[in-house]
Design a protein around this nucleic acid. Structure first.
Lengths: 239, 239
DNA sequence: GCCGCCCGGATTGTAGACATTTTTTCCCCG
DNA sequence: CGGGGAAAAAATGTCTACAATCCGGGCGGC
């Protein structure tokens, strides 16, 4: 029956598979920000026709990964710092709301799950596994959103976090950031378990802001610093 | 040059026009919730090929108006009461955040605009123009979201409000609701102009909850009441 | 020497045709 | 007379072909 499940999952439309492939190409940098998605080239590379490629591109447009211009095609979206800041603010509100909700309605099982994730992240920090920590970090936030019980909020959070993830991976290069972030996770979890909704909301929002700060620091390191400051005119610098 | 502008606006892809047409069909009830979007029929009716219809349907899927199932097509989405409640909660958080932000950063021009909208709604209530009030109500909320200066939040709010609008129009059938809602608008605007972010957030959230209550009342009237209560098992009743 | 114009190549937008899946219908069997 | 199953019909998924549009290079005029 495992084969049945496999066959069932394999039976998704070509567009979906193409969409996943395109996400991978964007992720890996093979399609850098600003690049145009040439329909015939991509179709040939992926061994499909232009139709599925077009549908996948339009789907990616709705998720915000690309923008399409009439008669000119789809371009990999370049997120400005301003847009990233706005997404952080949005995520802050959503994550804070979810934490507050969870503080008054957290089950024992959920608490154990969250504790386990935090423990695991600590181990991965100690073991020098930044990729593992990164994955655990995502799980922690997504679990809290999922446990909050509002599917609409969760979907919005996931959508926007994915956009940020396109560039955020580098934010945790320094091990100090990871320990700092996980300490915040632990404090937030304590507040939730204590049932203090107001404190949990505040800590969740603060944690998101800290993540934003870590992200900006990483950007500054990467780009050499001065640019972030000088480009403040429009903050149009792509990341 | 007016002709140039007109030509420029007319020069949008067929998919966009088809999408608008489909939204209209769903809006008007010609495509009731649960109905399947027959590609060849719609294509024939609209005088285009299946391609644009498909693209429009996929676009509508991302906006949440339809859901598409592999090999079965696109169906007009049926929003459950649970989902509507979750969207109200999400909107409450977003609207509250925007109001709080606006309370500390509202310009004089923005204040005048909002005041004018509220005045206009009052006039339309007095003039017995529920459709006009309904439009003004949307403008008021969207203006606050726009003035808050976070495009990401605004986009999320608009997207989800549009889903609710599919059914919310009937919520204001009783004139008492309109007066009540506009009184809340006025109080919220006063808080914003007073610069009290905390109060503005609270009033904005409260206003959204009131809107949810008005909506539930309208639903109860429409469906005869008992169903909402008994269907609480899964709240799967479509609206 | 520079600007504007025109034309060819390339690319996207749309239409129509074929393949695959789903749904419906109808017949046969119990 | 009701239910199961197979075949036909219909609908979607995908592919190929054609039309409209946009970008870059070269030419002529000022």
């Amino acid at each position: 029956m495992s084969t049945i499940r496999a066959a069932r999952e394999a039976a998704q439309s070509l567009s979906s598979k193409v969409q996943t492939a395109l996400e991978g190409l964007i992720w890996s940098g093979a399609l850098p920000p600003g690049a145009r998605l040439n329909e015939v080239t991509l179709a040939r590379q992926l061994g499909v026709s232009r139709g599925p490629v077009r549908e996948a591109a339009r789907a990616l447009e709705r998720t915000g990964l690309v923008t399409v211009i009439l008669n000119r095609g789809a371009f990999v979206r370049t997120l400005t710092i301003d847009e990233a800041m706005q997404i952080y603010e949005l995520n802050s509100v959503l994550f804070g709301s979810a934490a507050a909700r969870l503080a008054v309605a957290c089950t024992g099982e959920q608490a154990m799950t969250l504790r386990a994730v935090v423990e695991q992240m600590d181990q991965r920090i100690a073991g020098g596994d930044p990729e593992g920590f990164f994955a655990g970090n995502i799980v922690f936030h997504e679990q809290i959103m999922a446990f909050s019980g509002n599917a609409a909020m969760e979907a919005v959070y996931l959508d926007h976090t994915r956009k940020l993830l396109l560039m955020r991976r580098r934010s945790f290069d320094r091990s100090g950031s990871m320990a700092e972030a996980n300490a915040e996770h632990r404090r937030l979890l304590d507040s939730i378990l204590a049932g203090d909704a107001s404190l949990a909301r505040q800590q969740a929002e603060q944690h998101t802001r800290s993540g934003r700060a870590r992200f900006l620091t990483a950007i500054a390191y990467k780009d050499g610093g001065p640019r972030v400051g000088t480009a403040a005119e429009k903050n149009a610098a792509t990341i």
